[in-house]
Write a protein that binds this DNA or RNA. Sequence first.
DNA 1: TCCGAAGTCAAACGCTCGTTTTAATCATAC
DNA 2: GTATGATTAAAACGAGCGTTTGACTTCGGA
Lengths: 221, 221
Amino acid sequence: MAAETKERILDAAERLFADSGFAATSLRDITGEADVNLASVNYHFGTKEALLSAILERRFRPINDQRIALLDELESRAGEHGPALEDIVAAFVGPPFHHWSEAGSGGLKFLKFIGQIHSQANEEIRAAFLRQFERVLARFTAAFERALPDLDAGEVTTRVVFIVGAMAHAMTWGEQLAARAPRAPCRSDQLLDSLISFAAAGMAAPQLAPVRMPAAAEGGR
Amino acid sequence: MAAETKERILDAAERLFADSGFAATSLRDITGEADVNLASVNYHFGTKEALLSAILERRFRPINDQRIALLDELESRAGEHGPALEDIVAAFVGPPFHHWSEAGSGGLKFLKFIGQIHSQANEEIRAAFLRQFERVLARFTAAFERALPDLDAGEVTTRVVFIVGAMAHAMTWGEQLAARAPRAPCRSDQLLDSLISFAAAGMAAPQLAPVRMPAAAEGGR
DNA sequence: TCCGAAGTCAAACGCTCGTTTTAATCATAC
DNA sequence: GTATGATTAAAACGAGCGTTTGACTTCGGA
């Protein structure tokens, strides 16, 4: 029963956090939904924040591991010019969608976290989350730079952030917009296809020549 | 002193809500930051949720008005094929950035709301926000469909959501990433250029032929 | 000069929060 | 059977929450 209680708490908390946010969800909401005793959260996890940390760990570590594994495979198979742009994009945005299908009824709820973590977790958890994502960001940034030699490094990073935002936002608002724009793609594989196509084209966009500041202004800061 | 107090509350609340979220920010935090009395929030706004509503109204209505005004101007100037894709994108993503420069020290904090509203506001406020955005979405969807006749309507809507997400996410994580990837563009006009280039290319991406379900499955739902 | 509306203030209200405590329950090894 | 360690249960804790109250300023117009 021990592991079962822990899992029930994790499942319920993940669902409620994603729907209502971390601060707005009480432990009583969670234990009510999970049908466990209130004190069991503090018994198994210590604090509410440690519970959030456990949720993030459970979901994002396998996703990030798979992203890197897919990129490893792509790069080992590719020639000297590296993998194709679309394949890199697919390796980056695919795993969250695939883990959805496997997780079953949970939905893509946990992806809503991406857009919310920055405001929901304290500095420590936020830093831990960023640290884990950083290895992914570093690997993919390098792969993108290789595939897009005309872009400078900062621009690549910026565009990866764009992709993450597009993905997280689509998850977050997808339900609501589906109700209002009935012809928008609701099925997750269609949404994934749209995202890959959109993101690959966006990454490949020409970089506008940066506006150079006058030398006086540039040296003067 | 009346209007001054109201404004001080709005400014402080906007800053704190964007940084820490709605539920995690107490009225005592806000009144402390604004240096006003605790009861003045309820006196001027009624409830905490009404305060959030006032913040959203103050920021997003002029932005959405300007978006539509810019699109009006583009369409009145354009020929029978409608405005260019990049111009439509610029009319959509530009106003939030420009209001930033005008607002001064506040930063782009209010843009963080976009990614958070769905989990921070109650159903009523969320609906009001969506309703106001819907007129923008409808106008721009139509303009995009005209500029991109190969895309079907649902796909256009989906991609607009991608753009909103990319914009909101870049604002949200921009500060943090700037610290870790020092060469990423920090100046807002550079970020805006990057976003316009990325989004226009993404919108113009080819639409993959949707996977047709077998007829039996399609008719069977 | 006095009045009344508008605004400010300190204090308190009832409530819910995360967490802790203490006791009861259960499985397992002796 | 009984001792032991892990888990669950119920109740309570103090703190902080959003909101309300009622007295106190402030000040332009009768």
